[in-house]
Nucleic acid binder design. Sequence first.
DNA 1: ATCTAATAGTTACCTTAGCTAACCATTAGT
DNA 2: ACTAATGGTTAGCTAAGGTAACTATTAGAT
Lengths: 147, 147
Amino acid sequence: MKASQEFFQQFMLLYRSFEHHLNDVLGNYGLYRAQWSILHYLANNGSATLVELAQYLRVEKPTITRTISRLENIGYLSHIPGKDRREKRIEMSETGYILYAEVRIAVDALEEDILSGVSEEQQQQTTRIMKGIRHQLTSKEHTNEQK
Amino acid sequence: MKASQEFFQQFMLLYRSFEHHLNDVLGNYGLYRAQWSILHYLANNGSATLVELAQYLRVEKPTITRTISRLENIGYLSHIPGKDRREKRIEMSETGYILYAEVRIAVDALEEDILSGVSEEQQQQTTRIMKGIRHQLTSKEHTNEQK
DNA sequence: ATCTAATAGTTACCTTAGCTAACCATTAGT
DNA sequence: ACTAATGGTTAGCTAAGGTAACTATTAGAT
């Protein structure tokens, strides 16, 4: 079997396994994967517009709108006025950040546990490879759009 | 940021990017990811029972039942009688395999393209790491069950 | 300055694909 | 022979993706 085929087979399988465990942890806090990934982005980047999130997460705008509105309803987000009146710039609210910090600890523990058999260097190397692959995919998307 | 956190961040992002492209390809053949993963399993293992698939794909039985029944309706599967009359053992039908072979070519091309910047050795090494991580997750699940 | 694109976001609606709970049929174990 | 356990199905829920069509605002071209 091709090396690339085996790579993606394992990749997909690992994704499901990991998602399974992640859902377990997030479920304890009433969160879901898509919501969590947005909170994670906001924690690392401070604020975001919906388009920014859509591009980063590789998802269409309506998907983001829905997930955001759920987070808004729970009260985890607040708005920042941007100079462009079309855009909706958001950040985590006080309560949003408090929750994030708490869940972050649990998720970190899970992730470290899962990777306990992999050396730090290997983790970093693999992360670099995945970054590179994603970059390759992104440029592929751009050339496709120009067609 | 922790190495493990960065690892899973990139992992999740790459998953979405890849799924996006995979859907594009599969869509041309009227297939979806979950269906494809079952065909893939059957291609590699010859036949399977539903429980076997559920465990392999880390999904509950009803999920498998539904996906299987779709594949059956299209006519891509056929039954093999097993000795146990409870179990439903399936394999790919003639038309199923013909389709699989055709889609396989397209998916292989996509996967090779995506990994074109990664050396064969690195691919294999990463595959090994992912296998190891999944194994770690599986044993974790077993110890949890015994509690 | 005005008119036309393009961009940001929303709404409505559809589908896949997960889940749990409750169930039937069959087999295994005591 | 009776009770577990196992394999599978049904019904029904939800998250999370998608497209199409829309509004409001901004940017660009003439």
